[in-house]
């Protein structure tokens, strides 16, 4: 079929397609021209075409920053925790919810776990600050087990990494679990009946039918997650960290935010950092996809 005939037949569909296409071109591709700022000493009054070209100076400044390596370490640590504990939590939640026999209770659990997703990061972090201060509820609870009564967010230690991860889980696990729950509900019930007839207990059913059934979804979600792992959580870290805990709380995005927009605007430096993180994210996405293809024979593309 020639493109003309195709267009004639599906013209309306193409017209409808123009709307999202325009959105992507206008709001996603055209702004990419701004990446040039990463290689410029960008001045707002001179614009993109009038600013001085400085090559890789912004990247050099970024890499040689006093706290760059600390920020990279913290970013990697928090990313790792998000990819492990943070990634597994919604799967577990989804599996547990699907094991509940009472539909009403199941819905209640879903609603309760889903709701924090709609709480803004500011409120979420304010709650964390309240609960984790030296007189906060969580601190009081932990003190029952011998932990010190302290402001946990002011504790300059890797504790911050875990706080950030668990806060992310509290806020996002319910939302992320929906896709797994939907996937589990989509598994053919006859498989379970057959397994029961073959003598499989619930654990075996879970392991060999449920988890196997949602493996493609897990792979897809993991691949998507791995590409975003360096850029998520910026707002929470920014709202919770403080100078005295930079050593363990500062991440690449907050570091860039301070360097780029601290005393004044440095668009070049912040664009360089954004570009760097996008490149790393894309590389991780491709690597994750490739590894998945090799290990499980399943991949996104």
């Amino acid at each position: 079929m020639t493109w003309k005939r195709d267009f004639k037949r599906n013209g309306v569909l193409y017209l409808i397609f123009l709307i999202p296409l325009s959105y992507y071109v206008i709001f996603k591709y055209v702004p990419m021209v701004g990446l040039l700022m990463a290689f410029q000493n960008y001045r707002v009054s001179r614009g993109l075409w009038g600013s001085q070209w400085v090559g890789f100076d912004n990247f050099v400044e970024l890499f040689t920053g006093e706290q760059f390596l600390t920020a990279v370490r913290n970013t990697c640590a928090m990313a790792l925790l998000n990819l492990t504990i943070g990634f597994i939590a919604p799967i577990l939640l989804g599996l547990l919810v699907c094991q509940l026999r009472s539909k009403r209770f199941s819905r209640l659990v879903q609603t309760v776990t889903y709701m924090p997703y709609f709480v803004s990061a500011v409120v979420c972090c304010s709650l964390a600050q309240e609960f984790l201060r030296d007189t906060g509820a969580i601190t009081q609870f932990l003190s029952l087990f011998g932990f010190a009564k302290q402001n946990w967010l002011a504790n300059n230690s890797p504790t911050f990494w875990f706080i950030n991860t668990f806060l992310g889980i509290w806020q996002g696990a319910g939302y992320s679990a929906i896709i797994y729950i939907a996937g589990i509900h989509g598994i053919n019930q006859e498989l379970y009946e057959a397994a029961q007839m073959d003598g499989a207990n619930r654990w075996n059913q879970l392991l060999h039918i449920t988890i196997t059934g949602i493996t493609p979804i897990i792979i897809m979600m993991f691949t998507l997650q791995i590409g975003l792992v360096f850029v998520t959580g910026f707002d929470k870290v920014l709202l919770m960290y403080m100078p005295s805990t930079y050593e363990h709380s500062d991440v690449l995005l907050t570091y860039t935010y301070r360097m780029g927009f601290g005393s004044s605007n440095s668009f070049g430096l912040s664009t360089a950092s954004g570009l760097l993180q996008s490149v790393i994210g894309t590389a991780l996405l491709l690597i994750g996809n490739m590894l998945s293809k090799k290990a499980t024979k399943q991949s996104m593309f």
Binding site: R43, Q67, S244, Y246, R258, S263, S264, S266
Partner: peptide
């Protein structure tokens, strides 16, 4: 000028960042 302001901003940010961690300690 622009170059001096950039150096000032950069140095000021680095120093403030470090002092904010070290001085309280």
């Amino acid at each position: 000028d622009d170059e001096e302001a950039q150096l000032y901003n950069k140095t000021n940010t680095y120093i403030n960042d470090y002092m904010a961690q070290a001085v309280p300690q």
